[in-house]
């Protein structure tokens, strides 16, 4: 299995094709979002809603054999694309790996504005929430 940073570097490499072309980047992100496995409606309750000012994000964590897995969804396509990247980086990792990792790919692919302000979208809150779940699992 690739390391967290190897996956991040791969993402950065893929996005380098869109350098200077924000529109294509967004379209690519939205296509990625469409490939995200559907989240069971039962897991989209209010308890799993991470609220942002503009977009909604649902996040449902599980721990199996010491590995964390997240199901997630959003009502905005761009956020959903970013979620699919985040899941490719963090799913199947141990709580320790998640907590010790540093997410740098979001800035590097030029989507830093998505995590700049908690108000604008649920994505930044989602990252925090994922780490909180990892912390809770670690202390179990």
């Amino acid at each position: 299995m690739k390391s967290i940073n190897e996956v991040q570097d791969e993402i950065i490499d893929n996005f380098s094709l869109f350098e200077g072309d924000m529109e294509s980047k967004l379209f690519y992100l939205m296509d990625l979002g469409k490939k995200l496995p559907a989240m069971p409606e039962a897991h989209k309750g209010d308890d799993y809603l991470v609220k942002g000012c503009q977009s909604k994000v649902w996040l449902f964590p599980t721990l199996e054999l010491g590995q964390v897995n997240f199901e997630a969804d959003s009502n905005t396509e761009i956020t959903k694309g970013l979620i699919s990247l985040l899941i490719s980086v963090w799913n199947g990792r141990t709580p320790e790996e998640i907590l010790n990792s540093e997410l740098y790919f979001i800035e590097k692919i030029g989507m830093g504005s998505m995590i700049g302000s908690q108000r604008s979208n649920g994505f930044a809150s989602m990252i925090r929430q994922m780490k909180m779940y990892a912390l809770a699992y670690q202390q179990k």
Partner: peptide, 12 residues
């Protein structure tokens, strides 16, 4: 979603 529309407009 309005957020996506805003982001796509900004991209241009």
């Amino acid at each position: 979603h309005h957020f996506d529309i805003g982001m796509m407009l900004d991209a241009r």
